[in-house]
């Protein structure tokens, strides 16, 4: 174990997988000479050379397609999106090619590709650079979608994603790159895709949250503990496939659930998880499932407005209280 940042954990995952498998390569804008717009690929060009750390021009659809084509014939590309907002230019390649080729070919051509980069709210980056992009991908059969919240998960999940034989959308966060934590230095350490983590055990209410929202939910939970409310926090880690089992198990224990997400709420992850809980554990619920979501508005630039857009610790705490005091049970 070593303490390192989320960024360093990703970097280490890339290094280890590239050392292990010569078919793994990194491709994207500014990944080489510039060492990554967010420095995730720092030092990789030096270690692996330009053949395996491939700088591209600004052509998201083009270089994502290059990655998919290379994956069809057996390479294992890691495509970096400078930020996931730009993945919209490659959305057709991801949705119509990467996600569909194995199916349309009756299993002949799988696509072992990872498409990674930061997404979600950052700091005053305004409407085009702050979107929670996972919704565009987890709807699509044939894609796996990962949102790693901690340095340990960043490493273990990225390694699993690279070893996976299918397209994996791996969305990091600008706000988490400097978060520090314990990380395994064992090159065989993996975090399997499709397994949620219980971040905090509790008995009164289950909060489902990932990325920055998970940290805010943790703060809210600490505060509520002072009022005697015991909060359990489940971090799904992988949104597709979603580990509903862990979520449902927790809800069966606590009988209450709050889902938090940074993006706009309409037809978001919160809607999906709330539905799953209602369908699977309705009789266990003591209160309707609550959602705390980003406002249904583009991300504004002004700091004062930006604060209103994304769920705060206070909003999360309010929702938890409401769910706990519903039907007068407390």
């Amino acid at each position: 174990m070593a303490v390192m940042t989320y960024r360093e954990a990703l970097n280490l995952a890339l290094r280890e997988e590239m050392r292990r498998d010569p078919d793994v390569f990194v491709i994207g804008e500014e990944v080489g000479l510039y060492e990554g717009a967010y420095k995730v690929t720092q030092g990789l060009l030096k270690e692996f050379g330009p053949k395996r750390i491939v700088d591209t021009p600004i052509a998201e659809s083009g270089f994502t397609g290059v990655g998919i084509g290379a994956a069809m014939v057996g390479l294992r590309p890691v495509v970096e999106m400078m930020t996931f907002n730009f993945a919209l230019l490659a959305l057709d390649q991801i949705v119509n090619s990467a996600a569909k080729l194995n199916y349309m070919s009756g299993g002949q051509y799988n696509v072992p590709i990872v498409i990674r980069g930061p997404g979600g709210p950052a700091h005053q980056l305004a409407a085009q650079h702050s979107q929670s992009m996972e919704v565009y991908f987890y709807h699509v059969p044939g894609l796996k979608v990962v949102r790693p919240s901690t340095p340990m998960d960043a490493k273990g999940l990225l390694k699993s994603a690279i070893r996976d034989d299918n397209p994996v959308i791996f969305i990091e966060s600008e706000t988490l790159y400097n978060v520090k934590g314990e990380v395994s230095e064992d090159p065989d350490f993996l975090v399997p895709l499709g397994q949620a983590a219980v971040r905090r055990e509790g008995t009164d209410v289950t909060v489902i949250a990932y990325m920055g929202m998970m940290y805010r939910a943790m703060e809210a939970a600490e505060e509520l503990a002072k009022d005697g409310i015991s909060v359990e926090i489940v971090d799904p880690r992988t949104l597709q496939p979603l580990d509903t089992e862990t979520i449902i198990r927790s809800v069966r224990k606590t009988h209450r659930a709050v889902v938090v997400e940074a993006g706009a709420g309409f037809a978001g992850m919160g809607s999906e998880i709330a539905t799953e809980i209602t369908e699977e554990a309705f009789d266990d619920l003591d209160a309707p499932v609550a959602r705390v979501t980003g406002a249904q508005a583009p991300m504004p630039y002004a700091r004062s407005l930006e604060r209103l857009k994304t769920p705060t610790k206070e909003k999360i705490a309010d929702a938890i209280r409401q769910v706990c005091y519903a039907n007068g049970s407390r």
């Binding site: 083009g62 397609g65 998919i68 084509g69 290379a70 014939v73 090619s97 070919s105 002949q108 051509y109």
Partner: peptide, 28 residues
Amino acid sequence: FDKEHNFLGGHAIVGAHLPLAAGVGFAI
């Protein structure tokens, strides 16, 4: 698609398979 004969498909989004071809060239 016919992997046995290195036939990489039948793609129905106009233009979308050109980057894939470049990717196969890259892999070669």
